[in-house]
Simulated scan of single mutants.
Amino acid sequence: MLTPARGMSTGLLAAFLLCAAATSAESGPAPVCPPTVPTCTVSVERPGTPSAPVAVDAPAPGAPGDRVCVVDLTGETVPCRSAFGWFNDSDDCYYGLLDPQPPGDDPLWQGNYPSGAMYQVSCTGPLPGTNGGWTWLPTPPPGFGGVSVTPAELASRAVDRMQLVGPAIGITVPPDRLGLVGVPVWLWTEVSPTTWGPNSATASVPGLSVTATAQVQEIRWDMGDGNAVVCPNAGTPWYEGGIESPTCDHIYEQPSVGQPDDAYTVTATSTWDVTWSGGGASGSLTLTRSSSTTVRIGELQVLVTG
């Protein structure tokens, strides 16, 4: 809530559009497998070996350029910094940190002291500089300090830092062994922050910080024989004496003879749910990451002699 400004002249308010300081956008690390690119695929040669992150269509690194501030109502380009602070693209207002901050018992804090900070707000409009006052915010507003990235863009950077990958495939029939028709093939992934979750990371620039958290919700196992198994869990690693998996398995009905290299290609695709918040905004993303291996399946031959 804005508190009306005290002792602020109309002439002074109108002057803020004429006072500017050059600012530059903050540049960040080059994204790797951004949320808008839904799939990273790797090959797994043996069970229990984590797949490595692979970049897919990663944008070329580089600075985003100077920040441009535009008033939505008029389309007018204005200084990103004025005598009254930094321009906030979300509401077309300038925010300046009150210095000194009001005493802790001042009603302006609305009981929030000492969390956050008090800001002077001056908004554009039909009569520039006539709207504004003071307000408390838990974190600096978007654009404060020259920030040119959005919270969603910072969320993408946070996801990059997690290095989410496809399942670290565990399977009872690794590529160097032969499985049998009719015998359950157990399916699982090694559980780690990068292959199953939970995983979290924070990306920040001056004046803005966003934290993202990711967790796999399910794994789809395409078994190479035209069938797929969807498991809402990480699966159960095989144990001595186990026959049917208590959580995730598949039974082949035909041998793999005649398939490329006489083996079925198994592709495991995990669906990651990502939530993020920061800078007064929040959102969610759905990502997929894949890994693959091969399975050779034969038939048990019974020789009868008489």
Results as ranks from 00 to 15, higher is better:
I297W: 12
V274W: 12
L287R: 15
G235V: 06
G280L: 01
S282L: 04
G182K: 15
I297D: 04
S290E: 12
G145C: 13
G28K: 01
G166A: 06
G75V: 02
T294Q: 08
V230I: 12
S282F: 04
S204V: 07
S9A: 07
A152K: 03
P34E: 00
V173H: 11
T305E: 14
V229N: 00
P31G: 00
L187F: 08
P79Y: 00
S292M: 10
W276D: 00
S245E: 03
P151W: 03
P140R: 08
T213Y: 02
R6V: 15
L303C: 13
V71I: 07
L300G: 07
I251K: 14
F144I: 02
L154R: 00
T49Y: 10
D273P: 02
P31M: 02
S209A: 09
P255Q: 03
V229A: 07
L164V: 14
S9F: 03
V159D: 05
A60P: 01
T286A: 13
V147I: 14
Y94P: 01
G11H: 06
A63T: 08
W136E: 04
E153A: 02
T294C: 04
Q101A: 11
S277K: 14
T10C: 12
N233A: 13
A201I: 15
A63M: 05
L208D: 01
S156H: 02
T247Q: 12
N227T: 10
T49V: 11
W272V: 13
L108H: 03
A21W: 06
V257N: 05
P114W: 13
M8C: 10
T49L: 15
P138V: 10
H250N: 02
L154M: 15
P4E: 15
V173K: 01
T3P: 10
W188D: 15
L285C: 10
P128N: 14
L164S: 03
W134L: 09
G28Q: 05
V165Q: 12
M1C: 09
G241P: 06
G242H: 08
T213D: 05
P138T: 09
P246E: 08
T23H: 09
A5W: 00
P237G: 09
V147L: 15
H250I: 02
